[in-house]
């Protein structure tokens, strides 16, 4: 008589945990023993995707490193809402210096650890998209190029939210921000290439580059864990919806991240040594409109007669991503 193990679980591959899963198959977040690197009492807005993404990523990094972790934080929402004197929400060794220098500060920490023979201590640098793709870009590229032993994580909420929702180089075309108002013939942010930092990171030939969202925790944690198996510069780009900046319901944070990936508008993939090695294929493909509509920053695309021409251009971006990374759902 042959015995076959039943591999299928009712929510096994998608939910945070499940009583039926073995411990190894559960996420770090499913465990009561998780670090809670970012603890309760922080002052992030309701439904903050960045607070979620930071805890996800750092708790996973804490598990991967056995708690031997130091985090360096750029200025931004995450820093401001986590450490207003006299309270901090961090439960890990954490340093904030400036807005544009987190990659370099992280390099310094890593260098100090190496000089002191503390190879067991690993370093994570983290910033929002402004601190990563804009003001911190030079420092980040330098860190990549030198191959410093740092995992840098960008929590991308597609704008300068801490300062009141201004445009960054990661803001998608047509999105309304306080510096790209939804007025005139070309409302919202301009159409352009944006600054596709994951691909720029890949161009540095660093050992590991990945994107993820707060909607797929298993994928995100696996990528952090994978990143920690490499030494040298690594980059993780996590999409973290911002209810305030995106004009979305606080309950929709995870849903929007999911729609971003499922529409192809935000490609989820990983690359090693400059070569794409894996993509998270779309499971239930949706048009970009389904992703855009719940967000007030895109409301001008749908008000009145709407701007189907602009929506179509945004759809082309998603289609190009699907094509470039091979994101199309598997054939039935």
């Amino acid at each position: 008589m042959t015995e076959t193990r039943v591999h299928f679980y009712q929510v096994g591959s998608f939910a945070v945990g499940n009583r039926l899963l073995s411990d190894a198959d559960r996420t770090v977040q499913a465990s009561r023993e998780r670090t809670n690197s970012l603890d309760a009492g922080h002052r992030a807005c309701q439904g903050c995707g960045e607070a979620l993404g930071a805890r996800y990523a750092l708790d996973a990094a804490m598990r991967a490193t056995g708690g031997r972790l130091v985090a360096v934080n750029a200025t931004g929402c995450l820093e401001v809402f986590s450490t207003p004197f006299p309270e901090t929400s961090w439960r890990i060794a954490w340093l904030h210096s400036l807005f544009g220098n987190a990659p370099a500060v992280a390099t310094g920490v890593a260098a100090a650890m190496r000089a002191k023979g503390r190879d067991d201590v690993r370093v994570v640098g983290q910033a929002g998209d402004g601190g990563t793709v804009d003001i911190g870009f030079g420092a980040l590229s330098g860190m990549f190029e030198r191959h410093d032993d740092v995992l840098f994580i960008c929590y991308d909420n597609e704008g300068y939210m801490n300062t009141g929702v201004q445009r960054s180089a990661a803001t998608p075309p047509t999105a309304r921000t306080a510096t790209s108002e939804a007025v005139g013939a070309d409302p919202g942010n301009v159409f352009g290439q944006g600054k596709d930092l994951p691909r720029i990171a890949m161009a540095h030939d660093i050992p590991y580059v990945a994107t993820a969202t707060v909607a797929d925790l298993h994928d995100l944690e696996r990528k952090v864990e994978r990143a920690m198996t490499f030494r040298g510069a690594r980059y993780l780009h996590v999409l973290v919806p911002c209810p305030l900046g995106w004009g979305a319901a606080s309950a929709d944070t995870v849903r929007l991240a999911r729609l971003a990936a499922e529409s192809g508008f935000f490609p989820v993939f990983e690359a090693e040594h400059g070569v794409v090695t894996g993509v998270r294929r779309i499971r239930r493909r949706v048009g970009v409109e389904e992703y855009l509509r719940p967000q007030r920053r895109f409301a001008h695309l749908f008000a009145g007669e709407g701007r189907p021409d602009l929506v179509a251009r945004l759809q082309l971006i998603a289609d190009a991503n699907v094509e470039r990374y091979g994101l199309a759902p598997e054939e039935e």
């Binding site: 039943v6 299928f8 939910a15 945070v16 945990g17 809670n36 309760a40 607070a51 979620l52």
Partner: peptide, 28 residues
Amino acid sequence: ALFEARRCLSCGNCFECDNCFGVCPDNA
């Protein structure tokens, strides 16, 4: 049978998937 049972969505009744525990941005 096990497979089939596990297809149950557990509509309206918590089956301890840990989602709420995981997705709370406030560890609440």
